[in-house]
Amino acid sequence: MSPVTCSQTNNKNKRLPTTFAWTSRGKTAIVRWEKNFGKYSPQERCQSVAPRFQEAYDNGTLQMITNGKINGQPD
Score class of each variant (00 low, 15 high):
42 P>M: 08
74 P>L: 01
32 R>I: 04
56 A>C: 00
15 R>K: 15
18 T>D: 13
65 I>L: 06
14 K>L: 07
60 G>P: 01
49 V>Q: 08
4 V>Y: 01
69 K>A: 02
68 G>D: 02
20 F>G: 12
5 T>N: 12
58 D>G: 03
5 T>V: 13
47 Q>N: 15
53 F>H: 10
7 S>E: 07
21 A>E: 12
44 E>V: 00
16 L>K: 14
36 N>P: 10
65 I>R: 05
15 R>F: 03
5 T>G: 08
17 P>R: 11
64 M>T: 14
6 C>S: 11
50 A>M: 01
25 R>N: 04
17 P>T: 10
50 A>T: 14
52 R>K: 09
34 E>W: 09
2 S>K: 06
52 R>V: 11
25 R>E: 11
63 Q>A: 08
48 S>D: 10
20 F>E: 04
37 F>H: 01
36 N>V: 12
75 D>G: 13
1 M>D: 07
36 N>C: 10
15 R>A: 11
48 S>M: 11
68 G>Q: 06
43 Q>V: 15
23 T>N: 02
28 T>H: 07
48 S>I: 10
31 V>G: 08
24 S>F: 00
52 R>C: 01
17 P>E: 02
71 N>P: 01
65 I>H: 09
55 E>K: 10
57 Y>H: 08
39 K>R: 14
53 F>C: 10
22 W>K: 13
49 V>M: 09
51 P>L: 05
22 W>T: 13
34 E>D: 12
15 R>L: 11
59 N>H: 02
31 V>I: 14
32 R>T: 11
43 Q>I: 15
61 T>A: 05
39 K>W: 04
1 M>G: 10
26 G>D: 00
9 T>H: 07
19 T>H: 09
21 A>F: 07
64 M>A: 12
21 A>D: 03
18 T>M: 10
35 K>P: 01
27 K>H: 03
34 E>V: 12
13 N>M: 05
35 K>H: 14
9 T>R: 06
34 E>Q: 08
